[in-house]
Design a protein around this nucleic acid. Structure first.
Length: 268
DNA sequence: CTATTTGTTTATCC
DNA sequence: AGGATAAACAAATA
């Protein structure tokens, strides 16, 4: 579920607890999300510390507590963050629960356990937060930057390339399909086959889809409008809003891609 | 029982 | 070397 905007939504959920003090952390330490944490004792250091602020880069989150405590989270495929009152029953798969002194709880829930928890106690940025890329919505992410990355991937198809987090931090499967549909690029198009005009369109569409997704999903997780591909791409039988013809769903490099054959003509 | 899944990493083969 | 492909992780859902 969680791509750029969903992850940003979750960051904002937990950020409501900024300024509050931790009373207790409980972790189901045998679960796979803790595979990078060497010792369960790390979590005892949180007791009495205050959540100061939070950061997001692509799909990665970082929550910074005082006493130099850094908590990194990745949502994987099914991770969710909740912020609920202690009176509310703990949901299933709540494998990391941070109780706060005001009786509220920060919860990381992850049924499939593809998510990841990271932890450091350090004055400076931990190494797992040091390799951050430019955000796609930032002015520092330029066409030239995108083009330099694409130039290294010339012979590959564009769809799986858009899923590479080092080049396109935050883009996941639905955003990649949405971007290619709006850019009218066929997902199997070789990167090298896209001319400069098409790549310019791709660049601006990436920005547009990121901003659209953040506006609609990060702010209240509203339902996207039917003018997006989003509402039509999930199941077989979807109809392209542009052509009124059936969408195609097929696996490309191990992931389901959805596109509109007569609409997405660039790179074919 | 089968097939599918909004993510990432690793192995293997060409 | 680098790209394509599959598997692994794990569990819900249809």
């Amino acid at each position: 579920m969680p791509e750029l905007a969903e992850v940003e939504f979750f960051r904002r959920v937990w950020s409501k607890a900024e300024g509050k003090r931790v009373s207790k952390v409980s972790a189901s330490f045998d679960k796979r999300i803790f595979r990078d944490i060497p010792n369960v004792d790390f979590f005892t250091k949180f007791k009495g510390s205050i959540l100061n602020h939070s950061l997001r880069n692509g799909k990665k989150l970082c929550f910074i507590f005082n006493r130099d405590l850094w908590l990194g989270l990745h949502m994987g495929m099914t991770g969710r963050l909740l912020y609920i009152n202690k009176k509310v029953k703990l949901p299933k798969y709540a494998y990391l629960v941070i109780s706060l002194e005001d009786k509220s709880r920060l919860i990381f829930q992850d049924p499939r356990l593809f998510g990841r928890v990271l932890f450091s106690k350090s004055k400076s940025k931990p190494e797992w937060w040091s390799s951050c890329q430019d955000e796609l919505i930032s002015n520092t992410y330029t066409f030239e930057k995108m083009d330099a990355f694409l130039a290294q991937k010339g012979r590959r198809s564009i769809k799986p390339v858009l899923l590479i987090q080092d080049g396109f931090p935050g883009i996941g499967n639905w955003m990649a399909d949405e971007i290619l549909w709006r850019s009218r690029i066929i997902p199997t198009a070789r990167v090298i086959s896209l001319n400069r005009n098409v790549r310019m369109t791709l660049f601006y569409t990436i920005k547009e889809v990121c901003f659209d997704a953040l506006r609609v999903i990060a702010d209240g997780w509203k339902k996207p409008p039917n003018s997006w591909l989003f509402n039509h791409r999930w199941t077989n039988g979807g109809i392209c809003p542009e052509t009124d013809e059936p969408l195609v769903r097929e696996r490309i490099s191990g992931r389901t891609a959805c596109w509109s054959p007569r609409w997405q003509i660039h790179g074919s």
